[in-house]
Simulated assay, not measured.
Amino acid sequence: MYYLLIIVQVFCLYHAYKNRKPYYWYFLIFFIPAIGSLIYIITQIYNKSDAEKIQEEITTVLNPTKK
């Protein structure tokens, strides 16, 4: 369980670095690992519009005649 938390924390730190997020995200993820990583994933990685776009693409692939 602890290893999973470290992996998620490292992923969030890498994602923040790669996308040049403000410095407070690094502090949040590093000093409050579980909650900080969860907040980062919800607010920065998971985006509702992205989810809707993916759902539309899946619908188009499964049923090409539906628009």
Rank of each mutant, 00 (worst) to 15 (best):
H15C: 11
I42P: 01
A51H: 08
Y24W: 14
F27M: 10
V10W: 11
S37H: 01
I54G: 03
I7T: 14
L62V: 05
K66T: 05
A34F: 01
Y26V: 12
R20Q: 12
L13W: 07
N19P: 02
L5P: 12
E57M: 01
A34R: 05
R20P: 10
H15V: 09
G36H: 08
V61K: 14
I54C: 05
L28R: 15
F30L: 12
K18H: 07
F27T: 14
V8E: 15
I29S: 02
E52W: 10
V10M: 10
W25V: 04
H15P: 01
I58P: 06
Y23P: 05
L13F: 04
L62F: 12
I32C: 08
Q44R: 02
L62T: 05
F30M: 13
K18R: 09
E52Y: 11
Y40Q: 04
K48D: 03
Y17L: 07
N63A: 06
W25N: 09
Y40C: 02
K21H: 08
N63C: 03
I6A: 15
S37F: 09
I7H: 15
T65D: 08
I39R: 03
F31S: 06
C12F: 04
Y24H: 14
I7L: 12
I42T: 04
Y40W: 04
K48E: 13
A16R: 08
W25K: 00
A51S: 08
T65E: 13
F31Q: 03
R20A: 12
K48C: 02
Y23H: 09
L4P: 04
M1Y: 14
H15I: 07
Y2E: 13
W25D: 03
I6Y: 15
V8N: 15
S37W: 00
I29E: 03
I6N: 14
P33T: 00
F30T: 11
I45V: 11
L62I: 07
K53W: 01
Q9F: 04
V61F: 05
I45D: 01
F11R: 09
P33S: 03
T60M: 08
I6S: 13
N63M: 01
I54V: 06
I39V: 10
Y26M: 09
Y17I: 09
T59F: 10
A34I: 11
T65Q: 07
Y24D: 09
E56N: 06
D50H: 10
F31T: 01
I41K: 03
L28S: 13
I41C: 11
S37V: 01
P22W: 07
Y26G: 07
F31I: 03
E56L: 05
T43P: 08
A34N: 08
A51R: 07
L4A: 13
I45Y: 06
K18C: 00
R20L: 06
A51L: 13
Y14S: 12
I32K: 11
L5E: 14
S37A: 10
I7V: 14
V8F: 15
L13M: 02
P64D: 03
L38Q: 07
F11Y: 15
Y23T: 13
I54M: 10
S37D: 08
N47I: 14
L5V: 15
T65K: 09
P64L: 06
N47M: 13
